[in-house]
Design a binder for these strands. Structure first.
Lengths: 133, 133
DNA sequence: ATAGCGTGCTTGGTATATCAAGCAGATTCT
DNA sequence: AGAATCTGCTTGATATACCAAGCACGCTAT
C-alpha cells in the first residue's frame, strides 16, 4: 500500500533525501545496534530515549557533541551529519563520490526520496526475515 | 595612542589562552564593530544582548549557527570557534574533503552482494509497479 | 502460563541557548 | 543646559535539547 508518510516534519530545507532521523535510524539498523547499545557505546553520552527522539525527528538540531558521538560509533562522517542537521548550509558542490566499499552504490539510480525510504524499509524487512546469525 | 599598529589581526590559528568570549570580544573590537553593528550585520541572527553574554562567558556553547554567523562577519575560521567553544574537532578526515552524501547513501549500509542484488530487484519491481510517466 | 529480558517509545522535568525590552553611562548634537 | 543617540549590559521569558524513569510489546525459555 502506498503509505506516503505518517509523520512528516515538513521542514523546508532544500530537498533532503532522508531526514536526519531516518538516516541515523537506517544506519543504526544496518549496524545492528539497539538504541541501548548505542547509548552504551557512547558512554552514556547519548541516551536511548534521546536517540529515539532524534530518529523520529522530534529533535530539530542535536548538538554537534551528540552528532559526533554518533558519527564515531557508526563510523560515518561528522560533516555529513552536521549538514543533514541543518547546521552548515553549504553551497552546491559537485560530488566526487570516492567510495571505499566498492559495491555499486545506488547513486546512479537517481532515487526519489520516496523510493529511498521505501528501499530502506525493504532492506530492513529483508534482514529481519533472514535471521542473521 | 591613536591606532594600535595594524598588525596582522587576521585570525591566527589559535591564540593561546583566551576564552571563547575574550577571543570574540577582542576580534570584534579589532574590527571596530559595536554589539549592535554585529547584530545588524548578522541579519538579526545574533542579538546584541546575546553577543554580550557570549563575550562575557555567560554562554557555554553557542550553537554552530551563531558561531558560523560570527565567523563570517569577522572573517575568521569557523573551526577555530568551534574548537574554542568546546565542540570536539575529532581527528578525522582532513578538511577540504568535499561533501558526498548526495543521494541515498547506501554505501554506508554494508550491503552484501546478495542484499544488493535483492534490493536492486526490489527497486526495479517498485518502479515497474508505480512507473510515473 | 509466567517470568524474564530486550526492544522501541513516551513523558515529565531540568538545564540552557536565545532574544525583546529595558537600563545607566558616555558622547555628541543643538 | 537638555535631547538625541551611542555604548555595553542585565534580566525575564520562551523554546528546546537532553535525560531518568517508566510503559507496552515482543521474544525465549522455562
Amino acid at each position: 500500500m502506498a503509505t506516503a508518510d505518517d509523520k512528516d516534519v515538513g521542514e523546508p530545507t532544500t530537498e533532503p533525501n532522508l531526514t536526519l532521523g531516518q538516516y541515523l535510524a537506517s544506519i543504526r539498523k544496518d549496524r545492528r545496534l539497539s538504541l541501548r547499545a548505542v547509548e552504551e557505546r557512547s558512554g552514556k553520552q547519548v541516551s536511548n530515549a534521546y536517540l529515539s527522539q532524534i530518529e523520529n525527528n522530534q529533535i530539530q538540531q542535536p548538538s554537534p557533541n551528540i552528532l559526533n558521538a554518533l558519527a564515531e560509533i557508526y563510523e560515518i562522517s561528522l560533516e555529513g551529519l552536521m549538514e543533514k542537521a541543518g547546521f552548515i548550509q553549504k553551497s552546491g558542490l559537485r560530488e566526487q563520490n570516492e567510495r571505499h566499499g566498492r559495491i555499486a552504490t545506488f547513486a546512479e539510480h537517481n532515487l526519489t526520496p520516496e523510493e529511498e525510504v521505501e528501499l530502506m524499509q525493504y532492506l530492513e524487512f529483508m534482514r529481519h526475515r533472514k535471521r542473521p546469525r
